[in-house]
């Protein structure tokens, strides 16, 4: 602890001094090639991809022309784009809610010495390492109206089969189910890492004060998890707003377009209509929303910290 303080002071003091030229050169020597590669192979396509949102560019063989904010005006006047944005929001919120809460519950239950802990933890996380292209096919097979076991199971308990594909409620349910199946493990691991980093001394102190289990959860555990909460919220939201593969592979935006999400719309604009302008605009809107959310969350984190 003391060590950290001196380092921090050193850094603060260092700001007043001029940068060491040697250190500067050394840093750039190490990181320069990496940044150069990044700028070329990863940065350039991003800038290119976002820039085309300001162009009128339809069709692969045509040349782009500058369009200013026209695409964005169209985006916010079009009920379908706004609908996809809303769909992404509420489907994403549901996925995030289940991932975060069930993930936390799992981590909380697993964060004590118990037999088979490693095995259970592994099974929870297992879906996260599977390939979406393969596992969405399994879910698709489940809800197949003829050979799917979802309806089979209903029939076994004496219920009428359900036309999953005709109901917005059920399609959203299945997309959320798949996304949570694959996402809960990741959230659980993050929470577990956070829980394990809490100093046991805090709990001992709470025990001495005679705190109950719930009190300890609310007054010791949760406040100590602020770091990890910020991380879980930001990565969770970023991922949830970009739900795409389950929609592409399982619902294909159905039924009747009610599960169309914004990234799927962008993808359709790109590869369906070759409308790079609108796709770029849509992508930029998602990017801005994610930025605003992340900055707000970070801000909340900083305010609480003080």
């Amino acid at each position: 602890m003391e060590q950290a303080t001196t380092v921090a002071e050193g850094v603060r003091a260092g700001k007043a001094l001029s940068l060491s030229k040697k250190e500067n050169r050394l840093a750039w020597m190490l990181i320069g090639p990496i940044l150069l590669y990044f700028a070329l192979f990863q940065g350039f396509p991003i800038v290119f991809g976002l820039g085309i949102g300001f162009t009128n560019w339809v069709g692969v063989t045509s040349r782009p022309t500058f369009a200013g904010l026209r695409n964005f005006v169209r985006f916010f006047q079009d009920p379908i784009y706004l609908g996809t944005l809303w769909n992404a929001f509420y489907i994403g919120a549901l996925v995030m809610f289940f991932n975060v809460t069930i993930g936390f519950a799992g981590a909380y239950l697993l964060n004590t010495p118990m037999k088979g802990k490693t095995l259970i933890r592994s099974i929870w996380y297992l879906p996260a390492v599977t390939a979406p292209v393969a596992t969405t096919q399994i879910f698709l097979m489940f809800i197949d109206p003829s050979s799917g076991i979802a309806n089979r199971a209903l029939q076994l308990v004496g219920l009428e089969p359900i036309a999953w594909g005709y109901s917005t409620f059920w399609m959203v349910t299945w997309i959320v189910a798949y996304s949570s199946w694959r996402g809960i493990g990741g959230a659980m691991i993050l929470w577990l890492a956070g829980l394990q980093s809490i100093d046991p001394a805090f709990y001992e102190a709470a025990d001495i004060d005679g705190a109950s289990g719930w009190q300890k959860l609310i007054y010791v555990t949760l406040p100590s998890l602020r770091n990890i909460t910020t991380f879980v919220l930001i990565t969770g939201f970023t991922g949830a707003l970009q739900i795409f593969e389950p929609v592409l592979f399982i619902s294909q935006a159905g039924p009747f377009g009610t599960t169309d999400v914004i990234v799927h719309r962008v993808f359709r604009d790109f590869y369906g209509d070759f409308n790079f302008g609108m796709a770029g605009a849509g992508a930029l809107v998602i990017t801005l929303i994610i930025f605003v959310f992340s900055l707000t969350t970070l801000r909340w984190y900083q305010v609480k910290e003080q």
Binding site: P45, Q242, F244, I290
Partner: peptide
């Protein structure tokens, strides 16, 4: 850090052209 927030779909076609 900001680049990690860019949805991957943005870069599909530009990457191919490049």
């Amino acid at each position: 850090l900001m680049t990690t927030m860019i949805p991957p779909v943005v870069t599909m076609a530009p990457t191919y052209l490049m």
